[in-house]
Structure formats: structure tokens, C-alpha cells
């Protein structure tokens, strides 16, 4: 259920913590396993992470449901995480969210029919002087306009 490649990645995180504290790596382990399972988690994959880190399944499930960055339903290949909080709002984030929804034909929280993209409205991503902004994968895109969004979204494969 967890590939050898993923186990190796998890091991590099485990090595950062004291002996017997391998459960400190659970947050990254869940991310790694999520990434190789279509970007979402199931009770089985969560249990597999718990078993690998020798911690109770419920403890891993608590982490998986407490933090924002884990998915428990199918999501798109790319998640567009668009900020709607104050600095972005003051700079037109609501209009851009509407633009994005119109362009993709889905509401926030939904996945496009081809499974490529879903849009998630998120709270502050800590790039307020670059508002409005969104995140796709590891990358932040700042000072967004409708045209800039079109260019970025059209380039997603």
C-alpha cells in the first residue's frame, strides 16, 4: 500500500526526530502517501501510514482530519487553492474566484469533469503583499488578474 519509494522518503523525515519519536513524521508521511494515491487519503491508506510509523490508527486519522492539506474525497490532478481573506478580498479576490468558477464551469469544492482541476477557497496563505494570489502544487502565483489566471489555467495539463 505504501511504495518503497514513499517509504524511503518517509524514512528521511523519521531520521529528523529522536529515537522512538517516529510519529513526528506522520504529517509528511500522510502527504507522501496522499501524493501517490491520486491526491487523497482513505481509511486504509491512513492505517497503512500508522502501521508503518508504529502508531495507533486513530492518532494518524486525527492528524489527517485536523489539518487542511489532506483530502478525503477525490480531487483534481491540480488543486487551485485561492485565498479569499482580507488582503486578497480588498484586491478583488471574490471577482477572481467567480471568474475561475465561470472559466472552469465548476464551483469551489468541485472537480472539473475531466478530473484535471478543482478549486478550493482557502484562508490566508501568507503572501498578502502579492494579493490576490493562489497556489497550485508547490508554486504561489501572485498579483493575479483575470488574464493572468487564464494563462496559468490554460497551461495546466
Amino acid at each position: 500500500m505504501i511504495s518503497n519509494k514513499a517509504k524511503k522518503q518517509i524514512d528521511t523525515w523519521v531520521a529528523k526526530y529522536p529515537e522512538g519519536r517516529q510519529s513526528s513524521a506522520v504529517m509528511e508521511a500522510l502527504k507522501i502517501v496522499q501524493a501517490e494515491n491520486d491526491n487523497s487519503l482513505t481509511s486504509d491508506t491512513i492505517q497503512a501510514v500508522a502501521d508503518y510509523l508504529d502508531m495507533p490508527g486513530i492518532a494518524a486519522a486525527e492528524v489527517a482530519t485536523f489539518y487542511e492539506n489532506y483530502n478525503h474525497k477525490p480531487v483534481g490532478k491540480h488543486t487551485i487553492r485561492i485565498c479569499h481573506n482580507i488582503s486578497c478580498m480588498l484586491n478583488g479576490a471574490d471577482d477572481l474566484i467567480a471568474h475561475l468558477e465561470n472559466k472552469l464551469g465548476v464551483k469551489t469544492g468541485e472537480v472539473t469533469p475531466d478530473g484535471l482541476v478543482n478549486v478550493k477557497k482557502v484562508e490566508c496563505l501568507g503572501a498578502c503583499v502579492g494579493a490576490p494570489m493562489f497556489q497550485i502544487g508547490d508554486q504561489y502565483y501572485e498579483n493575479l488578474t483575470a488574464d493572468k489566471i487564464d494563462e496559468i489555467v490554460d497551461g495546466l495539463k
Partner: peptide, 11 residues
């Protein structure tokens, strides 16, 4: 763990 709306200096 920077993330209070308006805060983006530590980044």
C-alpha cells in the same frame, strides 16, 4: 508558521 491575514514577512 506564518499565516495571520496580513502577515507575510517571515516568508
Amino acid at each position: 508558521d506564518e499565516g495571520e491575514p496580513g502577515t507575510c514577512k517571515d516568508r
